[in-house]
Nucleic acid binder design. Structure first.
Length: 577
RNA sequence: GCGCCGGUAGCUCAGCUGGAUAGAGCAUCAGGCUUCGAACCUGAGGGUCGGGGGUUCGAAUCCCUCCCGGCGCGCCA
């Protein structure tokens, strides 16, 4: 539809250029869906773009173009010049009537496309190390990544959701030490560190208290779940683990239990990963060593001060970075390079890393290194998101996994449920902070969440369906739906909004910005709810059989788009609430 | 100091490749349930789009500069 009109404008522009003896390339101009109904269905700015080049007033050019477009009188109702030189085009309403048939025919695939052409895309997200429960920040990333994956799938991509975690480094060692510390404290063989020392990283750290040693690590994990893990081990093994190394059963038990909790949380959120990759497997497969060797062969690595460095300055970055520490242990960077290289070896066409703002510094180094290894590094995309900031009585609360000052996904989830949680998290664009006011998180406030507004609009279409069945009124299907009777302006507006849906999905997918969907759905529901409310101007079920059928068709169309849109956000679309 | 991200209504935020009178939600105020679902709807007030320059027919959007906030700048991950 838009294409046909665009073509019409292109021809008109071509004719105009010829007449003026301008042999140049036709200019880029826009044909946009008008923002306001006063401006018709589409607006074209070609005259404004051409004015200077042709040295003619924009409105005069616009008049010529408008006349040309009016020629297509079988589907163009009128074309007017407005403002500084826009051409506004109204289409005959009949143009929208075919839409419902297409919507009902496509059903749950309406809005989907095949532009991805089966390209293999990996989306890596969450990737939290199993050292504690998922925080709101992880929750945001989880929902963001999952929605990106969903929109990519809807546009014909072959998507792999992947979770990567480091089980080799210091973090996991400290985790084991933390659990063992609490274990020994519970047995009375160690003294807990004073709370003041835990709270303040600069405070003095006593070696012994009342004759008992303080074994809990200075930078240990302070959450209650650590004590609970220790207690579980103590109940099962008594004091039989006193001489076990912290890096053994303590670490392993903690990792397994925490990971099981993380997976349970993700499941509740409706997030399912296809692949979990851990750092250790990269070592086991020799990929770390191989990567280092290959980087060395490329001449981008050197030894200095007992460590192995990446010559990233020569790759255009601001400093060199350590790949292997003086201790012989790789930094985080080297496994990350090996991992991204492995992604390409696995045949992904596009690799998307969803990461928090605190990790972006690392990204250019990984890309530069991987490029040196011959990978198509420009196919790695970074989707960066800011943190969730917590406010309590007007003040910001710092979140820290280690110090256990955070709100977990589980806590909020049990309060508001997965639907509201997901909507809340995907509402805003990723680059902005997401402010979470702990004082406002009461039940009454969540009741007026926009997520319910969308679900309510959806449920109301079922309310009408139930009523129609009661009255033995037949529902239209793709073959029988006939929207010709829809003539009210608000009905046309709804049809036009439905018509936008595929474009919105395409844009959300291409830009990796699922928040566009949530705003679009709010707009659609914002047309539909008032329409249903106004039973004075119009009712769906009436004595007029054709009109009733058409409006039922409209209801089914709205329902389809709401359901499909909600599905892309991973939010349920209930039949009643 | 350098880099990345943000600054739009009282609050939380949209604003697609520059377009016409800058939009939602919440909050506030005034109204609306005998009829398809009031978890809803109608209306009102509320803005120097952080400040200042520039490009353009046209700037919240692009360029420069300054101010404010977040994050990062480790042989931590």
């Amino acid at each position: 539809m838009r294409e046909a009109l665009l073509e019409r404008f292109r021809c008109a522009v071509g004719v105009l250029l010829d007449e003026c003896g301008d042999p140049g390339e036709p200019p880029d101009f826009a044909l946009e869906v008008s923002r306001s109904p006063d401006h018709g269905d589409f607006a074209c700015n070609a005259a404004l773009v051409l004015a200077k080049r042709l040295r003619q007033p924009a409105r005069a050019i616009a008049e010529r173009l408008a006349a040309e477009v009016r020629g297509a009188s079988d589907w163009v109702e009128r074309a007017e010049v407005a403002g500084p030189g826009f051409v506004n085009v109204w289409l005959r309403d009949a143009r929208w009537h075919d839409l419902l048939r297409r919507v009902l025919e496509a059903g749950r695939r309406f809005g989907h496309s095949k532009v991805g052409d089966g390209r293999r895309v990996q989306v890596e997200f969450v990737s939290a190390n199993p050292t504690g429960p998922l925080t709101l920040g992880h929750g945001r990333q989880g929902v963001l990544g999952d929605c990106i994956a969903r929109t990519l799938e809807a546009t014909g991509h072959d998507v792999t959701r992947e979770y990567y975690f480091n089980d080799g480094g210091r973090q996991m060692r400290v985790l084991g030490e933390s659990v063992k510390g609490r274990y020994l404290e519970q047995l009375g063989r160690a003294a807990p560190p004073p709370p003041g020392a835990l709270a303040d990283p600069d405070a003095a750290w006593p070696e012994r208290i009342d004759g008992r040693p303080v074994v809990f690590p200075r930078d240990g994990y302070q959450g209650d779940y650590i004590s609970e893990l220790a207690e579980t081990l103590r109940k099962r093994h008594g004091d039989g683990l006193v001489d076990e190394p912290a890096d053994g059963i303590f670490r392993k038990a903690a990792e397994e239990a925490i990971f099981a909790d993380i997976r349970a949380t993700l499941e509740q959120l409706g997030i399912e990963f296809d692949v979990y990759t851990n750092e250790m497997s990269l070592y086991d497969e020799g990929r770390i060593e191989q990567t280092l060797e290959d980087l060395r062969a490329r001449g981008v690595v050197y030894d200095w001060d007992g460590a192995v460095w990446l010559r990233s300055t020569e790759l255009g970055l601001e400093r060199d970075r350590v790949l292997v520490k003086g201790t012989g242990e790789p930094t985080y960077l080297l496994p990350d390079v090996a991992y991204h290289r492995q992604k390409f070896e696995r045949g992904f066409d596009v690799v998307i890393d969803v990461q928090g703002a605190d990790h972006i510094e690392q990204f250019p180094f990984v890309v530069a290194a991987v490029r040196q290894l011959g990978c198509p590094a420009d196919r790695i995309e970074l989707v960066m998101h800011q943190f969730v900031t917590l406010t309590r009585s007007g003040e910001q609360v710092k979140q820290s996994t280690r110090r256990a000052t955070y709100v977990t996904v589980d806590e909020l989830l049990s309060q508001v449920g997965a639907d509201v949680f997901r909507f809340f998290m995907v509402q805003r664009k990723a680059e902005g902070h997401l402010d979470f006011d702990l004082d406002l998180a009461t039940e009454t406030d969540w009741k007026q969440n926009p997520a319910f507004y969308l679900q309510y609009a959806h449920a109301r279409t079922y309310g009408i369906e139930r009523k129609a069945r009661e009255q033995a009124v037949a529902l239209p299907d793709a073959a029988s739906v006939d929207a010709a009777a829809l003539a009210l302006q608000e009905e046309i507006e709804i049809l036009k909004k439905i018509n936008e849906f595929p474009e919105v999905v395409a844009r959300a997918s291409a830009s990796r910005e699922p928040h566009h969907l949530s705003y679009y759905l709010r707009e659609l529901a914002g047309l539909w709810n008032p329409y249903l409310q106004d039973g004075v101007r119009h009712r769906v079920l009436s004595d007029d059989a054709a009109l009733t059928s058409a409006r039922l068709g409209l209801a089914l169309g709205v329902r389809t788009v709401l359901a499909n849109g909600l599905a892309l956000l991973g939010i349920s679309a209930p039949e009643r609430m």
